[in-house]
């Protein structure tokens, strides 16, 4: 008995519950509270407000149908969606080539070069990037000079203020996102699977078709959704490289607010863009399947 009494508790932090790596629920919630408040204030509230504004005063339903009947916004909506789909395909295709090479190459300099190429758009401001492309594509620009020098064309091509210029510009801006998203998927493809398939008799194309494609399909779909989503919100590139000839919804919404002072109309345009974006993403994620998402989480 005497010995029991003399046992003193060791010095140190006293814990009521066993230690776990994550914080307890109360601490966790409280630590997350500032962010939760910020999300409610700056994300959830404005999103709800968009729909509230679009439905305030006048005939709310008509405001939504106006987006489709007004030739300006209808055309802008179509341009936004088709150009963004093009951007998604182009960017993901290019990004896939870069990301796959990054994953498989054994040459260090190739990796360094590709990472640099892929990430340079990240390090440039939006305006600088678009301005560079603007100068590149201009009638007096280097691309036209090259084409004429080579005798491909006689007079300068009108490359600016076209769908091509817009898709080019947005794709360039979004390339890093595609490369990073796809790289994170591709690195999960064990390279020994590729060599195994090769030993088993598969050629390069067959390896890609029978092994790589099924394994990365979900990730590629998610990357497509990501790029599409980012693209439909673009404002600077469509206006700088596409002009008013190929406006995006963002341009029209901007005009509704700052030129026409039509706030409910702008809200309705934004709401419809939001709903379409949501539907597209939900569809793609459903195609990608829960398995992919679970793997990514």
């Amino acid at each position: 008995m005497a010995t029991v009494e003399t046992v003193r508790p060791a010095k140190g932090r006293v814990r009521a519950r066993p230690w776990r790596p994550e914080a307890g629920p109360v601490t966790g919630l409280l630590l997350a509270a500032p962010m939760l408040v910020a999300i409610v204030l700056f994300v959830a509230f404005p999103l709800v407000q968009v729909f509230v504004d679009a439905s305030s005063g006048g005939v709310p339903v008509q405001r939504y149908t106006d987006v489709f009947t007004n030739p300006v916004s209808r055309r802008a909506l179509a341009t936004t969606l088709t150009d963004s789909a093009l951007v998604a395909v182009v960017t993901v295709a290019l990004g896939a080539v870069i990301a796959w090479t990054l994953h498989t190459t054994a040459r260090r300099w190739v990796r360094v070069l590709l990472w640099t190429t892929a990430l340079v758009p990240f390090w440039m401001g939006m305006i600088i990037k678009n301005y560079a492309i603007y100068l590149l594509l201009a009638a007096n620009g280097p691309l036209n000079a090259l084409l004429m020098g080579l005798g491909v064309v006689d007079s300068p091509l009108s490359l600016l203020y076209t769908k091509f210029a817009v898709v080019y510009g947005i794709s360039y801006s979004l390339l890093p996102y595609a490369v990073l998203a796809l790289y994170s998927v591709f690195v999960q493809v064990d390279r020994s699977l590729l060599s195994s398939a090769a030993v088993l008799g598969a050629g390069r194309a067959q390896v890609l078709a029978t092994v790589v494609a099924p394994l990365v399909r979900g990730g590629v779909l998610v990357a497509l959704a990501l790029i599409f989503l980012l693209s439909i919100g673009f404002y600077v590139t469509p206006i700088m490289l596409g002009g008013l000839q190929t406006p995006f919804m963002a341009t029209v919404i901007n005009q509704q607010v700052f030129s026409l002072y039509d706030f409910p109309g702008a809200a309705a345009s934004a709401a419809i863009l939001l709903v379409i974006a949501f539907v597209v993403v939900a569809t793609i994620l459903a195609l990608a399947g829960g398995k992919t998402l679970r793997r990514m989480l």
Binding site: V26, T27, L30, L31, A33, P34, L36, V37, A38, L41
Partner: peptide
């Protein structure tokens, strides 16, 4: 720590 976080959140709000 949680108290400080709560205060921070409330202040922000």
């Amino acid at each position: 720590i949680p108290c400080a976080a709560a205060v921070a959140a409330l202040t922000l709000l």
